[in-house]
Design a binder for these strands. Structure first.
Length: 132
DNA sequence: GCCAACGTTGGC
DNA sequence: GCCAACGTTGGC
């Protein structure tokens, strides 16, 4: 099972919104690298939900509830995402940068990427930081 | 408010 | 095909 990281600006659509809605269509992605990751997602994959902007912290774990389908007519895709659980302790960006084993995270190396892969090792390290 | 990174657009 | 200009994202 693969792991991912989804980034969102909490003022536009945050973790609380996802929990309230019980899930949402992760659409509107218009970046080829991010779209490639969306296409690689499978039902049941877990995704860290990260708040950019003021929070700058991973706050929850979401699950991919449906694989990629067309989002518009130009080859872009969207997936369905549902909330799984909140993290016992949010993991801040500063904590990720400081953590051994997370320095190479795709999200840290390319900060603008809104959808990125997380390796098994990174996932384990993140869960430890999150108090899971 | 500024700047770095990165993608897109358009002139040549 | 190159590159300057510009827009967007996101951290500081």
């Amino acid at each position: 099972m693969a792991h991912w990281l989804l980034k969102s600006e909490p003022d536009s659509y945050g973790w609380d919104d996802l929990v309230r809605d019980g899930g949402t269509e992760w659409d509107g992605v218009r970046n080829h690298a991010a779209a490639k990751h969306l296409r690689a997602m499978a039902v049941g994959d877990d995704a860290i939900f990260y708040h950019s902007g003021k929070d700058k912290a991973a706050v929850g774990i979401a699950r991919i509830a449906r694989a990629a389908q067309a989002d518009g007519d130009e080859g872009w895709v969207s997936v369905r995402v549902e909330p799984d659980r909140s993290l016992p302790r949010p993991v801040t960006l500063a904590a990720m940068k400081a953590a051994v084993g997370l320095q190479d995270m795709a999200m840290l190396r390319q900060s603008r990427l809104s959808v990125s892969p997380v390796t098994d090792g990174e996932w384990t390290a993140l869960m430890r930081l999150a108090g899971e």
